[in-house]
Design a protein around this nucleic acid. Sequence first.
DNA 1: ATGGTAGTCACACTA
Length: 270
Amino acid sequence: MAFSVTTWNINSVRLRLPQVLQFLDSASPDVLCLQETKCPNDAFPSAAFRKAGYEHIAIHGQKGYHGVAIISRLPLSDDRRQTYCDIDHTRNISAVVAAPGARRIRIHNFYVPAGGDEPDREINPKFAHKLDFIEEMRCLHADAEQAEGISSILVGDLNIAPLETDVWSHKQLLKVVSHTPIETENLIAMQRDGAWVDLIRAHIPPEEKIFTWWSYRARDWEAADRGRRLDHVWSSADLLPSLTRVDVLREARGWERPSDHVPVTAHFDF
DNA sequence: ATGGTAGTCACACTA
């Protein structure tokens, strides 16, 4: 039985509702995780998602900034919202999805702080926040609920491109926030400590460049192709044998009024 | 070396 989950930093769910509905209509994932919804909970366009067949919705939003959501065709339960670094940004939500074959999977959806421009925690509090956030994520383990028979998937905009092939130029980005050694090392340490498997890289070899984000500021994003892989799909090791493919929908960056991030979908066969 | 664009919310802030 097929199962799929998508992560997408949508940069305003209300502004881009038509694009999201078009994506759901064509790609038809079982679960859609959004980041940067920029939408207070009482203004979330839930009715439009229900109408599209996604009746199970868990949201965590605030006015103006941040905001995450899990939108699902399959039942969700035990939804949780966690605060990181004692700062009440809406950057995390998780829920258990009832996947095919009586499988239960907790989906953790994250929007990690971007970290500002200066990669120095002493002078840039936003960068300090980002590093502290990643550090706090270290205690999240993929096998945390294994004893209860619950597998784990972690998705989101982690705002870090860890590998050399996750950016258009490793050398030119070494001092640019998102690809500095302290960030990439901490992210990889967090992945290792939590026993997470990087599903994008399980499907697309690490030698191959792959990006999920292209800046709005480029004159021609496609020609320049100065992208970064900031969006991630990780899982507990038990799900890896069931992974069939991962799709990075590059063409979505060229849609009308696009997000600067594209949807990434992991497909499983259970 | 700088500034380029996008979104929210109504002035600057964040990315």
